[in-house]
């Protein structure tokens, strides 16, 4: 099979399967939790739950990621905060504001949007790759995180890292021909999409559960989350 045929397969049928596995798997994970039942909270609230939720999201998404060092928890976790933040920033920018990926969304959703210039996206992509490497080293050296690192965490790292690396190489036409790099990128992306429902990565969906619970629980007890 030539690289072209391989690429067509990876961009065509395999991507379709991968995307459907991803969609079904993610829905499965979410509903497996949601349908477990939720008890009604009977204690009367003292403060505003909605206010707590708003504050919780505002702080969690809008403030702390950008100035993590102001929290006491920063000490001993600098790498996790900084590299973790840089990774997520690069990830979101590349996937949502990078032209190449925006065109993928456009083919799925039917509409696109303005994107950032390549040099900026590229810089953040490089930052994200460096951040991933820092996080890997951290997983082996920081005592608490080391306890929490097992095969599942390693698999997450590899399956997330490879698309980033191959994507960067592809953009810069590094070492191999373009269709070879494109193929590697699509292969690792397809593998990642299939892997996600089986991994810890759906935390991005469960974030909305835990963060809302957090804001609500603190809000109802009249404490700023």
């Amino acid at each position: 099979m030539s690289w072209h045929e391989f690429l067509r397969f990876l961009r065509g049928p395999l991507f379709e399967v991968a995307l459907l596995v991803f969609a079904a798997g993610l829905a499965y994970r979410i509903f497996r939790v949601v349908a477990l039942g939720w008890r009604r909270e009977r204690a009367p609230a003292m403060g505003s739950r909605a206010g707590g939720v708003v504050t919780s999201y505002a702080k969690g998404i809008g403030i702390w990621p950008f100035i993590p060092w102001v929290k006491d928890a920063f000490r001993g976790n600098a790498v996790t905060f900084l590299a973790g933040g840089l990774f997520h920033l690069g990830l979101f920018v590349v996937i949502l504001l990078g032209t190449a990926h925006m065109l993928v969304w456009k083919s799925l959703l039917g509409f696109g949007w303005p994107t950032l210039p390549l040099p900026i996206v590229d810089f953040l992509a490089a930052g994200a790759i460096v951040a991933m490497i820092a996080l890997l080293i951290n997983r082996f050296t920081q005592p608490v995180v080391r306890k929490l690192t097992g095969p599942a965490e390693m698999a997450n790292w590899i399956f997330v890292f490879l698309p980033m690396l191959t994507g960067y190489m592809m953009t810069h036409h590094m070492f191999f021909r373009y269709e070879v790099l494109f193929s590697l990128h699509m292969l690792t992306v397809d593998v990642l999409l299939i892997w996600i429902p089986f991994s810890l990565i759906p935390h991005f969906a469960f974030y909305f559960f835990s963060r809302t619970i957090h804001g609500s629980q603190f809000g109802r007890r009249a404490v700023t989350p």
């Binding site: 920063f74 976790n77 995180v145 306890k147 469960f206």
Partner: peptide, 22 residues
């Protein structure tokens, strides 16, 4: 004990270890 309240939070944990700092 485990209903959606507990399960969703267990699933949300990313094993980052930051909680130890608190």
């Amino acid at each position: 004990e485990t209903g959606g309240w507990i399960a969703s939070q267990l699933e949300a944990c990313t094993r980052c270890g930051i909680c130890a700092a608190a």
